[in-house]
Design a protein around this nucleic acid. Sequence first.
DNA 1: TTGTAGGCGTTATCAT
DNA 2: ATGATAACGCCTACAA
Lengths: 350, 350
Amino acid sequence: MASSRTARRGPTSKDVARRAGVSQSTVSYVMSGKRSISADTLRRVEDAMAALDYQPHVGARSLAGSRTGTIAVVMPFVSAVGAQSLMAFVEEFVVAARQHGSDVLLVTAEEGVEGLRRLTGGSVCDAALVMQVASHDERAEAARGLDFPVMFIGVPEDPAGLDCIDFDFAAGGRLLVDELVALGNRRISVLGWSAELVAQGYNYIDRFSRGVHEAAAAHRVPVDWHRAPVEGGFLETLEQGLHRDGERTGVVLTSAVPAAMRALAAQGMHTGGDVDVVALCTEAEAEEQAVPLTAVSTQPRDVSRRATERIFALLDGSATPGERLELVDAGLVRRRSTRRSAPGPASDAR
Amino acid sequence: MASSRTARRGPTSKDVARRAGVSQSTVSYVMSGKRSISADTLRRVEDAMAALDYQPHVGARSLAGSRTGTIAVVMPFVSAVGAQSLMAFVEEFVVAARQHGSDVLLVTAEEGVEGLRRLTGGSVCDAALVMQVASHDERAEAARGLDFPVMFIGVPEDPAGLDCIDFDFAAGGRLLVDELVALGNRRISVLGWSAELVAQGYNYIDRFSRGVHEAAAAHRVPVDWHRAPVEGGFLETLEQGLHRDGERTGVVLTSAVPAAMRALAAQGMHTGGDVDVVALCTEAEAEEQAVPLTAVSTQPRDVSRRATERIFALLDGSATPGERLELVDAGLVRRRSTRRSAPGPASDAR
DNA sequence: TTGTAGGCGTTATCAT
DNA sequence: ATGATAACGCCTACAA
């Protein structure tokens, strides 16, 4: 006999009430704290709850009340971000959500707009967090002006009326270039993302690129932008010893980091000596290389924390939805892949 | 005025019924398919649902019915597994769950037994999937003999009465050793997990180790077991050129793979030539190395699929709970880190 | 094949 | 400070 035929239901608030010798509604109020309870009743109700190991029925709650106690997280395709930072983000978010009394529903990007509609229908969750928005994302349109809190990680082309938060990729790009230039490099060679990834339209790529080019322009330094994988143009640059016209070329890595590092080594280049290499990657990745990388990291945990705050602020009404684009500060950590200090002014030409 | 004061509720089945000119229960039956409906009514109801963009209220459903439509996944601490495989597992599971009509609630290991109790209370989810059980895990005890489907990824010391599934780490260990021996290695040097990880009591470590030692014993080949990080004993072995008594030593990597590969290179060893190196790692990691690794991969997606099947089989009663320990086959993929074929018999001594 | 009605466990509005 | 009691939206016997 399948015992799963009937739902195994535990004690209800009615049972608690009976045992405590109070009315059911009192039990409810004890839980919500929405009206004052005499010390005595309070104790008796709490005892009864403990004795019966009472757990409120979440379905009944969301039916009668106005919240589901759930927040949905729409995760991106793993390929789009890197498992490392994704997991860090999610882990952080789930823990924080529970501290706020909410559970987390995990949904995949695969479900698309339709999936988001389902979530914003009202009975599934109180809010949704959508990771990795693309520049032109149907989901952003679906959420715009919707009377339902949806937070985006990433920045769509037109963020008007949306709640967005993301790492400041532009600042990251600027920081990296500034650093290379400060070390005396007069050219920048970037190993950017693969064509496939670019095609997805994730706009952090554009923003990072913009940051790089802005900084480079400000310093009047040319930029060679290559694409992963490590081959073609990027390799040629390496083969030329990274020096053109006798000017030092600094390297910026954004993907295929291990492969790139190997390619550098294969050219017999002493990273941190002959060449300055910087990267946009996770802390772990930066430190795991043979020569630890001076890098800007995307701080998934910070972004997650900020997103959590925002989302719960929206839920309890202490923040107004839309019109808010928040960027998480970029920071550069120096490691051995760059020289310690800038050389004397204009002392190149070897 | 905070619009979030009242829950934005969409159309109900009653609205659909009215519009379709049928009773509410008919709408319900159309959804559940639990009784035959005339073609005509069916069409009208479906039209009405579409027109109103109707979405059943999940809370009401779980209150009135016997299922919540949710499955909880208790994920491990990210440090314990590696983000890569964790994400693969989760992604796969979420997609599969949705195809079965269930949503996935994500919970962290941080919540411990108490968290599991909350989940098995009855009103939160229909089943729970607990990843990364330790050999002696309170959660396993809490689940044993509980009238609620809980599946474990991993194998506790005493799996009696529990539903467990995991990658066959013992077989993995055996495969790797067999391969090295087949290639003529007469000693095995293993770079095992860090002391911290071992201390957690995740028993896949024991099982792998057992597999390695069993196979080694069968081949009468000695095993040196070292611990990550790459230093101490492992490094010494490398410095001795891996050869003792003129016998070839094969290397098994289970963690700190990049560092280990670098250490090998630093010794001037030609992986796949001078030394045969095999690993237990993800496909991605195996392929990302300078010399791609012959490896056994833990197939998180396979494990996930199998877990999904089992869990839904338990839910629809087509499988009986407990008494079932399932292992997912290990397979070895040969890459360049090992020589192509075994040398002639006993042709060593350089 | 379809309709009627009771109940699932809470929340929240009336009263008292 | 506390009790009744009407929703909440759906499921499912029971009737017809």
